[in-house]
Amino acid sequence: MWWKLLLFFWIAAFSAVGLVTPIAGSLTELSMIAQWSAEKAIPVKFRTAGEPVSAEDGGWVIRGTDKHGHDADFHFSAIPENAGTRDGYLATARYDTTAHRVEVVEVLGEYPGFSFPFIPGLEERAKIIFFHVPMAWMTVVAFLVSMWFGIQYLRKKDLEDDFRSVASAGLGLLFCVLATTTGSLWAKFNWGSFWNWDPRQTSIFVLLLVYGAYFALRSAVEIEEKKATLSAVYNIIAAATVPFFIFIMPRIMPGLHPGSADDNSAGPVVSSGGMDAIMRFVLYSMLGGFLVLYGWLMRIQGRLHRIKLKRAELAP
């Protein structure tokens, strides 16, 4: 019982951390954005390194340091509350390239203890990584587990192995649908359309087709033993051919996903080892949570299965 509560709090806590942690950029991103758009304001955090000084053209200027230790003048239109005593700010701002100073648009709060990096092009939408990526991973894990028990069934002809294979395929289908839905909703806001035939979108679409075909095949065979054998064989064939997409897709389609082979703008999110440490920690914690959740769902299905067998008086 205790571990279920722990799991619940674990996932809830890391979801909260993932969603609530502010996104805050540095001077690097500010100047990068300024090259593309003079108007766009992004969230930044900085520590104050001096007293507010009134500016010649009105407003107030405070000397500040960003998280990388770079200095700049931060210009406020009105003097912020408790200006002398605060040690830092989280604020939306833009870089004024003519005055060579940062224009603070709106103060959001104190300097946050930890934050996620600002990634141009992703911004707040980067936070989907904590939910979408674990779902996509679980789809693949469930598929591999399903294939593993399929092989076990072919070796030992034990219908319990077949049951585990189906249970895992069912969960895989669930995670696959969730990953596809969250992904395409996100794609609408980030890439402009729900579906773009990006390599990973295509791969998950094919996995969805494989799961669909797997269950269609199962419902078309009546004898349990034959059903188990045929679906295990199909599972293995699919698992042997799906990886070809890894080689074929990049030739046909440019990747949109961060971390695609031809992607060099992904920056600090997922490029190997370059991901922000806090983000990586939250992501891996969520992955762990989802893995345990998957195990729990497998256990529940196992119990349900035994109850059904008992009612039909077929328990071994």
């Binding site: 219908l159 009546e222 004898i223 349990e224 033993e225 067998l309 077929l314």
Partner: peptide
Amino acid sequence: QISATGIGKKFNRR
């Protein structure tokens, strides 16, 4: 020569 031991067959778990 054929020798069979403990042969059982199930269809649909029956």
